[in-house]
Amino acid sequence: MSGKVIQLRTPLGPEVLELHAGDRVELSGLVFTARDEAHLRMQKEGIPFDPKGAVIYHCGPVIQDKRVIAAGPTTSARMNELSGFLFEKGVRGLIGKGGMGATVREQLKGRGVNFAFTGGCAALASSHMTLMDVFFEDLGMAEAVWAIELDRLPLVVGIDAHGNDIFDAARDHADAAFRSYPGKPPHGR
């Protein structure tokens, strides 16, 4: 990766195909939060916003008086088997933490990327956010879909549109290091 920070604005277009795993990005524009329940609802009832070039943020924020108080990322891997329909409808990016599985890595090929945002950085996130709208509010604060305007949120490309995945590279490193201990391997990862 290079030292430069790439500026992007939603809705995203084919420019995301040029990103590489490890690139630093500052993302601006509208994004939509969604966790497990929102994915299930969207699969059943449809996507309540224009999915063309949209970015989904895996996040259950704390909202108070129509403001975003805290909005760090949640574990993206929970959405590993729930995300395919989004890419088919034109979604170009997912933001979350911890990376995603091989299914999503394949689905992203030629379509979009998975951005990583630093876990626990809820106060930093909210300082880059303005709340715009909400869908599926009956799901509760954490599971509703919040439309949030970002102002240069600092992200890194975790999985790119060519199948490169820096989470997977780090896991391979950990595998090799752990194999250096003699004795039985642990019970899967």
Partner: peptide, 21 residues
Amino acid sequence: EFSNILQNIRAAGELGVPMCQ
């Protein structure tokens, strides 16, 4: 990532809000 963590700690202190949700 460290840069984000340090900025987050600063933002939480300045705003008087929890550093993690």
